[in-house]
Each structure stands twice: as structure tokens, then as C-alpha cells.
Amino acid sequence: METMAILFLGVLAIATAFLVIFSKNTVHSALWMVGNCFVLAVLFLMLNSQFIAILQVIVYAGAIMMFILYAIMMLNLRREQDEGDPRKNLVTGRILLVLLFFTGLVIMGVGFSPIALKGRMASQAVAQFGEVNLIADYIFSEGLIPFELVSVLLTAAVVGAVYIAKKN
């Protein structure tokens, strides 16, 4: 039952990912991307990680895709532009398709492997401590230095982005 559900979700995830690339309308692509984020969130739920699932929804489907959509709508890319030789696009598309298919297979393989279900986030541990506490505990004790480094990096990126935007 669970295997079937995960398989179905995997197929859905790959299908929505394909649609992101093959939609001719930019806004439709962005919408399929939102759908893809959603399917991934459900996959996280199946793996017993409510917190990661809702973060996937809030951060990716909510915030980031909202920004992307906002940018697309601001630039008003309503009609798709004709770019280059369609045959060339088709070949690139097919190569991408095959690549993506194998990436999906690898991801699903890792997901199914018993290794993935034995780490800190194994369902028994989650049931005992509650997931948010477990993640917070890890981030603010063992993972403190990488966590702080990442936040410094992100702040630097934001400042850099503001600087570049100001110059124009």
C-alpha cells in the first residue's frame, strides 16, 4: 500500500517536473513547479517528516514560487518567444528527458533503500521526541557552526543582490 503510494507520487513528481520544462507558457511552467513542490511535500509526509513537508510548502511553493511568479508577471511574458531552431530544442529536450528520468529513478532508489530509514530521522525517533524538537536540537548543538555559516552566506547574498540592483 505504502509502496504503491510512493510509486504513484514519484511518477507524479516526475510528470510535473516534465511539464515545467515542456509548457510553452512561462506562467504555466511556474504553476507546474508549484505542483511539483506539493508532490515533493507529500513524499516527505510519507517519509514521516511533517516539518520538512510543511517547510517545502511554505518556502518553495509559497515564498520562492510566489517571487518567481511575481517576476514573470512583472516582465509580462504572456506570449512565448520563438527561440531558434525548433529541431535543436527538441534534441536538447529529449536528452534532458532521459537525464531527468534517471535522476528520478536514482532519487526513488535512495528513498526506498533501507539506509534512508535508519538515520536520526527514523520514524521511531520522531515518534519519541517530535520532529521539530529533533531538528532544532541537531541544528543548534552539533550543526551550529555550519548553520551560522549558511546564514552569513545568505545575508551576504542578499546584500550583494541589493548592491547589484542599486547600480542599475
Binding site: 510543511i54 511554505i58 511553493a61 510566489m66
Partner: peptide, 16 residues
Amino acid sequence: SIGILFILGFATLGSY
């Protein structure tokens, strides 16, 4: 266990 985050997340999605 993520009740309030669920609300914040889906409230944003509604604005789509």
C-alpha cells in the same frame, strides 16, 4: 505537530 505552520503555509497558497 506543525499546526500553525500549516495555517501560515496554506494561507499563502490561497493568494495564488
